[in-house]
């Protein structure tokens, strides 16, 4: 049915678009391994030591520690809260659901910007600014809405008969959640974990405002500080940028489907 000409056109067209999208990424990768500090591409003399140098000069070791602590804790807590609240809405039903669920959904439409200023002052008055607790709490709180929405849909997709048979067997809600429902909803949980990992890891705005102490700042802020500070070695800056992006990109490499499905959830039908 499809002519060769059409095929060639398709490939050419897609390749052109892919090249356009890839250009900035490829360029930064190239600069990251070039020896020239002013950022000129020089792929004839690859300098892999840029990565270790950037790592040391930007002090990434302790930023990485913060990023891991923040992301690890926030993702774990978010996931647990999402499972519990999704189970509540999706399976058990909740007193006042008609009010509570929309109220929770409202959170997804309130942009971070609308609440960040009062949140900052609240945390400040509680002495929480510059602590891991504050930034983790903020991430978890802002993830509640999506998590509840997402897991509610996932648990609803579990056939009612399965839940009922569990109930007949005398399983209480707690056991049936963890033994019956969760294993079935595992793919959804997986996607949720990937997405919250990405959102937390990639965050800049929340951390910029809530964490001013470099000792507790994540990598994204470390990059900001590195790019605006003192010596400007573009190749090292590029190397640092690459380092930060690697974890999410690698995950995306292996879990492309989950990422895309999750981020397009609306269209793919909950």
């Amino acid at each position: 049915m499809i002519s060769t000409r059409e095929k060639v056109f398709n490939y050419a067209f897609l390749s052109l678009l892919a090249a356009a999208v890839l250009f900035p990424v490829a360029w930064i990768l190239g600069v990251a391994v070039s020896p020239n500090i002013s950022g000129t591409l020089d792929l004839g003399h690859l300098q892999w030591s840029n990565f270790t140098q950037a790592w040391q000069q930007a002090g990434f070791s302790h930023y990485l520690k913060s990023s891991l602590i923040i992301t690890g804790t926030a993702v774990t807590l978010s996931t647990v809260l999402a499972i519990l609240s999704g189970f509540a809405f999706g399976v058990l039903g909740v007193v006042g659901e008609k009010v509570l669920f929309p109220l929770l959904l409202l959170g997804v439409m309130i942009p971070t910007e609308a609440i960040i200023v009062p949140l900052y002052y609240d945390f400040q008055s509680e002495g929480l600014i510059d602590t891991y607790q504050a930034i983790i709490l903020a991430h978890v709180g802002m993830g509640v809405s999506f998590g509840a929405f997402w897991m509610r849909a996932a648990f609803r997709a579990v056939p009612a008969s399965i839940g009922e048979s569990a109930q007949m067997d005398g399983a209480n809600s707690w056991t049936s959640l963890w033994r019956i429902y969760l294993p079935i909803a595992k793919p959804a949980v997986m996607t949720l974990i990937l997405l919250s990992f990405m959102w937390t890891w990639n965050d800049y705005f929340l951390s910029l405002i809530l964490v001013s102490d470099p000792a507790h700042q994540p990598l994204t802020l470390g990059l900001g500080a590195f790019s605006g500070r003192y010596m400007v070695h573009v190749n090292l800056l590029a190397a640092a940028a690459v380092i930060i992006s690697v974890p999410v990109v690698v995950l995306y490499l292996f879990f492309q489907r989950q990422f895309i499905r999750g981020m397009l959830s609306g269209a793919v039908k909950g």
Binding site: L81, A82, L84, S85, F87, A88, F89, V91, L92, G93, V94, V95, G96, E97, L100, L103, L104, G107, I110, A114, I115, I116, V117, P118, L119, Y121, D122, L137, A138, V140, G141, M142, V144, S145, G147, A148, S173
Partner: peptide, 27 residues
């Protein structure tokens, strides 16, 4: 069961109230 549901929801609701709702109103 629905009261039980509320109990399951409570931790998420609490965090949400502190981080999102209260600041939104204060804002």
């Amino acid at each position: 069961r629905r009261w039980l549901g509320l109990a399951y929801l409570a931790p998420a609701l609490l965090v949400y109230a502190v981080v999102v709702l209260l600041p939104a109103v204060q804002g």
